[in-house]
Design a protein around this nucleic acid. Structure first.
Length: 273
DNA sequence: AACCAGGTCTCGA
DNA sequence: TCGAGACCTGGT
């Protein structure tokens, strides 16, 4: 299958998604409830899944003109180097609900624990997708068995997580509207919700709502921008610098920078991905 | 044994 | 609008 220029290891391993696993060259994940197995074959991808091909292409943003986007964000030597090093890293178009709920859980924690919390949520509430993997639960699956959330080790995020599930289930959150809206508008409406602040709102915007001009700023990105560009201050201030400096696809630049910063802290292992 | 982690919330200036 | 503190819990 042709998903456009793509490097599966960079795309699925850069940190934008939490649930994909790689074993012996085979990537396994769940998209829209369907088990998906992928293998990189040079420029092409071997896919084994029931997921419609259209959605798989949409998931990997196969229609993005990656070269044009990378050219657009390559506005300084630093990003040019990262684009060159991690070429083939594509943003992913995640399911908005799963993306939102996941990043609500990802606040003030670390990657290993975030993955653990999400896996517990999936096995506690989700549907078996086969292959020993559970799908991320739908909101109603969480509401139906709400007390079960207490056993997922979510800590202070538990209330936020359940409350958000309830709001989505009650259709108090309309992801289609948020997608159709402009970035600023979508961001403003997202931060109104419990558990969603500036950073999580930007993650939702760029990873699931097509707002490629959103630029999530976590501690590492903040540090990197301060060191590389001397950009510091409030979230809003740094955020505006990023949009001004990297342009309308700054969301892509964020992911390359995040990945580079994350790689510094990774320990070498057999499945380096 | 502390310290820290893909932040958010609350409160005071 | 912005900065300071508190905060569940499991890694390191």
């Amino acid at each position: 299958m042709d998903l456009g220029a793509i490097d599966l290891d960079h795309t699925l391993g850069c940190g934008q998604v939490f649930r994909w696993r790689k074993e012996g060259g085979l990537w396994t994940g769940v998209v829209d409830g369907h088990l998906v197995r992928l293998r990189q074959k040079g420029k092409r991808i071997d896919a084994e899944t029931e997921l419609p091909e259209g959605r798989l292409r949409s998931y990997f943003r196969a229609d993005d003109d990656l070269e044009a986007i990378l050219k657009e964000i390559s506005r300084d030597a630093y990003v040019r180097r990262l684009v060159d090093r991690y070429r083939g890293l594509r943003l992913i178009r995640q399911d908005p609900w799963e993306c939102s709920a996941s990043f609500i859980l990802a606040t003030y924690s670390n990657i290993p624990r975030i993955k653990m919390m999400i896996e517990r949520v999936c096995t506690s509430f989700g549907t078996d997708a086969g292959g020993g993997v559970f799908a991320f639960p739908r909101p109603e699956q969480i509401i139906e068995n709400e007390p079960g959330a207490e056993n997922c080790g979510l800590g202070f995020r538990c209330g936020r997580f359940v409350a958000f599930a309830r709001q989505v289930e009650a259709k108090q959150v309309d992801f289609d509207d948020l997608r159709a809206a402009g970035y600023q508008d979508a961001h403003a409406r997202l931060v109104e919700l419990e558990g969603i602040g500036d950073k999580v709102a930007d993650c939702i915007a760029v990873f699931s709502l097509d707002h490629l001009d959103a630029f999530p700023i976590d501690v590492r990105i903040k540090r990197a921008l301060a060191e590389r560009y001397g950009a510091s201050g409030s979230y809003r201030r740094v955020s505006e610098f990023a949009r001004r400096h990297f342009g309308r696809y700054c969301g892509y630049s964020q992911e390359y920078i995040y990945y580079a910063e994350d790689m510094k802290n990774r320990k070498p292992g057999p499945e380096q991905a």
